[in-house]
């Protein structure tokens, strides 16, 4: 059984295979792992089972179409899928537009450094571990915040999670992108 750490890095490989080879087997593996999680997320956010199933298929199809835009030096695959599912929830369940920041485009010419990618994926893994070790009550609160069960005024930042290092990692990746863009 591969460690969870290797698993995160593998998912990056899956996205790459989808991007470069249109690899349906890689897509199927990602689907089997993530689709039931996305569906649970959408149900908990207020969708009925049929709507959640339909939206999940949309989310996974989006992942296929946007595979070339995933930047593994800035996010884990789980985080990227989370943001796609969250945006879909805002569209469909909250019926609002989501204003998005200006893009920092990156393409093959800015292929991120492999060491940065591995470091980012390991950070994400560490964060997952830290969350798993939180007391049940705090973990529930976090889940409720991200599953859209708390209003924006009820949400307060959690402490004690290793977010500083992730922030610094992303900051570094952004600096490199800005530099590459001249």
């Amino acid at each position: 059984m591969p460690s969870a750490e290797t698993m995160e890095e593998n998912w990056v490989g899956h996205i790459r295979r989808i991007h470069h080879d249109k690899d349906e087997a890689a897509f199927a593996e990602l689907f089997r792992h993530f689709a039931p999680r996305v569906k649970a997320f959408l149900i908990r956010s207020g969708a009925d089972a049929a709507l959640a199933e339909e939206c999940t298929q949309d989310v996974m199809a989006t992942l296929w179409r946007k595979a070339h835009m995933f930047d593994p030096s800035r996010a884990s695959v789980a985080t990227w899928i989370y943001t796609i599912a969250r945006n879909r929830r805002i569209d469909v369940l909250r019926r609002q537009r989501r204003p998005e920041p200006e893009d920092l485009p990156w393409g093959p010419e800015h292929e991120p450094d492999q060491a940065d990618v591995i470091a980012m994926q390991q950070e994400a893994e560490r964060l997952g571990q830290a969350i798993a070790e939180l007391p049940q009550k705090q973990r529930d609160l976090l889940a409720r915040a991200f599953y859209g069960e708390l209003s924006h005024s009820e949400i307060a930042a959690e402490t004690g999670l290793p977010l500083g290092t992730i922030k610094s990692r992303i900051r570094l990746a952004l600096d490199r992108l800005r530099h590459a863009m001249g």
């Binding site: 039931p36 789980a78 985080t79 976090l142 959690e158 992730i166």
Partner: peptide
């Protein structure tokens, strides 16, 4: 970058909380 860190929590929560059969 701070937003990216919070989104990472969202991603980790997605992997750790429940599944619903497709």
């Amino acid at each position: 970058a701070r937003l990216g860190a919070f989104e990472a929590v969202g991603g980790a929560t997605l992997t750790s909380v429940g599944t619903a059969e497709m």
